[in-house]
Design a protein around this nucleic acid. Structure first.
Length: 424
RNA sequence: GGAGAGGUGGCCGAGUGGUCGAAGGUGCUCGCCUGGAAAGUGAGUGUGCCCCACAAGGGUACCAUGGGUUCGAAUCCCAUCCUCUCCGCCA
């Protein structure tokens, strides 16, 4: 969530930012925050004063009791009783104001960085660069959902039997390809200095709230029936939450973590004919990179992370492009996002395989993730993350782009991991 | 799952109703000592919020979490979570 201080210091800037993000009623929401905050502070000042008075009188009672002046002690007790009434009322008001304020803040998205382009939808995103050659496929080229049947490597029908739609079963070389990709991605991240984390795939509500999935995307997560737990939609949630309520030393920065996890998404409302095959699943595998760094370093880190993702795509010999999201298409928690898309030649479509974002202090404010600077002051850190990479669409593009009469060619970088050069 | 013990500051550990944000130790930071280091020695060392100039200073809250009792709670009561030991079960 946004920091109240940011809002107070420059409300107009926040409002302009929210408007860029196409957030409705930006002005009204900010005014509400400012109003609630002032009321809250006034209430606390008064409450603290009363509590201080009670504390002083209580000490006095203790002294009087020791001296044996029970009468005077009883007289003062009556005074504190009235004060306590007042403090209770104010305490309740204080809680209400705090909750109301928090509630408003939780529902305000992050503000885009000034360099984020204007725009309403994905149509307005900006293509930053495009690399690799788009393969010329022969007439009879198949989309990946037919290829997986032809080579018997992924089974959707079987997934339907075991669970339901969107939970495919990987088999044979399909299963091994998954494992190869995961290891390849993890090893590449390791080479770049990332520490590997294997987190739980089930998280509690506190974790979901801290990274911003709750309350914003509650309906998108699978929730466990008997406990207040959720299946993770991305490794970002458990990995970033490692640093919840943590004050790092400056020399521990930047933090660079990588983790492989399955990801679970309900994708409520987004199902349809356009998401055939591997394009959208309820469960999929993803390797995620997370960085935590000082505010002044975060945009440099964003650039580096994009380069790291790009290097994976070129090693996989996939044609890709990098897209900068416009204000209106930016996610709830993000200040700036680049999407990496690969070209899936049989579908003739660009598929998003990675989303690299800088959240600035939006997450760290909820996480209470800070570092102690030279002046011994606690400073909110910036958090960033990106997929490196999400598997299913990579698989889709690999299958489609690399199809040949002999079968499906595995890119050279991956062969040491698969142990085979062809799927046939 | 059953029985018992327990959750205190970066760490260890005292504290069972009053002046306790919390003894002592350790770690860390700065200084003295030293040719240098060790040892020794002096000082400092939690977080949020509020007042205030995001200074100095002051106030308030925080001893797992949430409630309660009391003029006053780390200390008493209740609930929840977690840890440890034993038993049961088990990949």
């Amino acid at each position: 969530m946004l920091n109240i201080i940011q809002i107070k210091e420059n409300p107009d800037k926040i409002i302009r930012g929210l408007e860029k993000k196409r957030f409705p009623d930006a002005d009204q929401m900010v005014q509400k925050v400012l109003f609630l905050d002032e009321k809250r502070r006034n209430t606390q000042t008064e409450l603290d004063r009363i509590l201080g008075e009670i504390n002083n009188l209580s000490k006095k009672i203790g002294q009087l009791m020791k001296e044996g002046d029970k009468q005077e002690a009883d007289r003062i007790k009556n005074v504190t009783r009235d004060l306590k009434e007042d403090s209770k009322k104010l305490g309740i008001l204080q809680d209400e104001l705090e909750n109301a304020l928090e509630n408003v803040l939780y529902n305000i998205p992050n503000v885009p960085h000034p360099e984020v382009p204007e725009g309403r939808t994905a149509e307005d995103n900006r293509v930053i660069l495009q690399q690799g050659t788009i393969p010329e496929l022969p007439e009879h080229a198949l989309p990946h959902w037919e290829l997986i049947e032809k080579y018997d490597i992924i089974d959707f029908a079987l997934g339907n039997k075991l669970t339901g739609a969107g939970f495919p079963v990987y088999k044979n070389k399909g299963a091994k390809l998954q494992r190869a990709l995961i290891n390849f991605f993890l090893d590449e991240a390791h080479k770049k200095g990332y520490i590997e984390i294997q987190p739980p795939v089930v998280i509690n509500a506190a974790s979901g709230t801290a990274t911003g999935q709750l309350p914003d995307k509650e309906g998108q997560m699978y929730q466990l029936k008997d406990e207040d737990f959720y299946l993770i939609p991305t490794a970002e949630v458990p990995i970033t939450n490692i640093y919840r309520n943590v004050i790092l030393k400056e020399e521990e920065l930047p933090v660079k973590n990588v983790g492989y996890t399955p990801c679970f998404r309900r994708e409520a409302g987004s199902w349809g004919a356009h998401v055939r095959g591997l394009n959208r699943l309820h469960q999929f595998d993803k390797v995620e990179i997370v960085r935590i760094c000082r505010p002044e370093d975060s945009y440099g880190a964003l650039k580096i992370m994009c380069d790291e993702v790009i290097s994976l795509l070129s090693l996989l010999e996939l044609p890709y492009r990098m897209v900068q999201l416009c204000g209106g298409d930016l996610g709830f928690t993000s200040a700036m996002t680049y999407d990496m898309e690969v070209y899936s030649a049989a579908q003739k479509k660009w598929l998003e395989v990675s989303s690299v974002s800088n959240f600035e202090t939006f997450q760290s404010n909820r996480l209470k993730l800070r570092y102690k600077n030279q002046a011994n002051k606690n400073i909110l850190l910036h958090t960033l993350n990106g997929s490196a990479l999400a598997l299913p669409r990579i698989v889709a593009a690999l299958l489609e782009n690399n199809q040949a009469p002999e079968g499906i060619r595995i890119p050279a970088a991956l062969v040491p991991y698969t142990g085979f050069e062809w799927i046939h």
